Amino acid sequence: MWINLGRLMMVLVWCFLILNVIQPFPRPLKYFFDVALIFMVLMHVLQLLLLKISLTKNEPKFTILFQIRMFLFGIFEMLAWQKKLRRP
């Protein structure tokens, strides 16, 4: 339940940051949210790359859908993935 709530919050943050690109906020906030969007994209790409690099050869490769979800939801998708791996 908490993971899904985190995913919902992440979608709202993405929408808010993309709204700033489509219709910019007043000047001081515009620059802050532009930097926040760039930082969020970089951190999610870095997280995805580090996860892909840490895979061993025995583990299955990530699907494109999983990679997109990992990029969009970040840590919340990683927590869901780890929870799914721990189940017997």
Rank of each mutant, 00 (worst) to 15 (best):
F66D: 02
A36N: 00
M40P: 11
F39T: 06
F71Q: 01
L42D: 10
T63D: 01
L37E: 01
F73M: 00
K52F: 06
L37V: 00
I68T: 06
F66R: 05
M70I: 03
M40T: 08
K61H: 12
F39P: 10
K57P: 11
N58H: 12
F71W: 02
N58M: 11
F71D: 02
V41T: 05
F66A: 05
Q47W: 07
S54I: 09
L72T: 03
I68Q: 07
K57A: 15
F62P: 09
L50C: 10
N58L: 12
E59T: 04
F62R: 14
F39C: 11
L55T: 07
F71T: 02
L51K: 12
L65H: 10
F73L: 01
I38P: 12
K52A: 05
S54V: 15
L46V: 04
M40R: 09
F62K: 15
L48Q: 02
L72H: 04
K57R: 12
I38Y: 11
L37Q: 00
V45R: 07
E59A: 05
L42R: 14
L46F: 08
I68N: 07
N58F: 15
V45D: 06
Q47I: 06
L51T: 11
T63Q: 01
R69E: 06
T63H: 02
I53K: 15
L48F: 06
M43T: 15
L48D: 01
L46A: 08
F39I: 15
M70L: 13
M43S: 11
N58I: 14
P60L: 03
L50I: 10
F39H: 09
Q67H: 02
L37T: 00
L37M: 01
L55C: 10
I64M: 14
N58D: 15
L72P: 00
